[in-house]
Simulated scan of single mutants.
Amino acid sequence: MIQPATESRSVIVEREIAFPPEKIWRALTQPHLIEEWLMKSDFKPVIGHRFNLRGEWGGVLDCEVLAIEPEKTLSYTWNFAHDDDAFDLRSVVTFTLTPTSKGTHLRMEQVGFRPDQKQAYGGARVGWQQFLENLEQLVARID
């Protein structure tokens, strides 16, 4: 049986950060820094590298690096397997860094939410705001 095409929804969060792309890039790609603003991980900035993000809530996200353009673009899968189909998430997160006169324009997009995943979608909308707030605070502290 052919499955009907389903629309997917995206969460997009954009913000201006008063630091250069290379500083933000470090926070996006170094595991000890990723842990400070997002979750514990065994991330490596290598296309095809499979890694996990482990939340304090006990959940584990299965991820794979899809694209890397240093200090410009980072994309990876963000998959959460769950017995309840409404929580089983197959998505892709992409960070885009654009230099500006005041620092960097950071754009995060997470694509792949099915229309029936209202709770996951709502959680991502709130969660990414907090993650990126944490990221901005971290970037301000690191050398």
Rank of each mutant, 00 (worst) to 15 (best):
A5L: 04
D85A: 14
K44Y: 02
S10H: 14
Q137P: 00
V126Y: 05
V13I: 15
V126G: 01
A86S: 13
S75Q: 15
L38C: 06
E14F: 07
L28F: 06
G112A: 04
W25F: 13
H32I: 00
I2H: 13
I24S: 11
S41W: 03
L66N: 08
L28M: 10
D83A: 10
L61I: 14
E7V: 10
A27E: 10
E69W: 01
E109C: 08
H105C: 04
P70A: 08
R50C: 11
E16P: 09
D143Y: 00
K102W: 01
G55D: 01
L53E: 11
L66K: 15
Q119K: 09
V111T: 15
V126D: 08
D85R: 15
L38R: 02
N79E: 10
T6K: 14
Y76L: 06
Q110F: 03
G122K: 02
L138Q: 08
L33R: 04
V93N: 05
Q110E: 14
F43A: 03
H105W: 03
R141Q: 07
V139H: 03
Q30H: 09
L38S: 06
K23Q: 15
N79V: 09
H32L: 02
R26Y: 09
E7W: 04
I34G: 05
E133C: 01
R54H: 05
E35N: 09
H105L: 11
E109R: 13
L61R: 13
V126M: 06
R90D: 07
W128F: 06
K118Q: 13
I24H: 06
H49M: 08
E69V: 10
A18Y: 14
G55E: 10
I47L: 13
I47S: 12
K44R: 14
L97R: 02
I142F: 07
M39T: 02
T29K: 11
T94M: 09
D83W: 07
H49V: 07
S101P: 00
I34Q: 05
A140G: 01
H49N: 15
K44D: 05
R54W: 03
Q110K: 03
G48N: 12
D116W: 02
S10T: 15
H105E: 04
V126S: 11
S91C: 03
P70R: 10
L74K: 07
S8M: 06
P21T: 13
A5K: 12
R90I: 08
F43R: 05
S91Y: 03
N134M: 04
D62I: 02
R114C: 07
F131A: 12
F95L: 02
V126T: 11
P115N: 05
V92G: 07
V126W: 07
I12H: 12
E64A: 05
Q117F: 08
D116Q: 08
L97P: 01
Q110Y: 02
I17H: 12
G59Y: 11
T73R: 12
E56S: 15
I34V: 13
I24F: 07
R107M: 07
T77C: 06
H32P: 01
D62W: 04
I68L: 13
G55F: 04
K118L: 12
C63M: 08
E136I: 04
Q129E: 13
K102C: 00
T77A: 09
N52Q: 15
T100Q: 03
D116C: 00
F19C: 15
S10E: 15
L33W: 05
P70G: 07
V92W: 07
T100V: 04
R141Y: 00
W37Q: 01
L89W: 02
A27Q: 10
D116F: 05
K102F: 00
D42I: 09
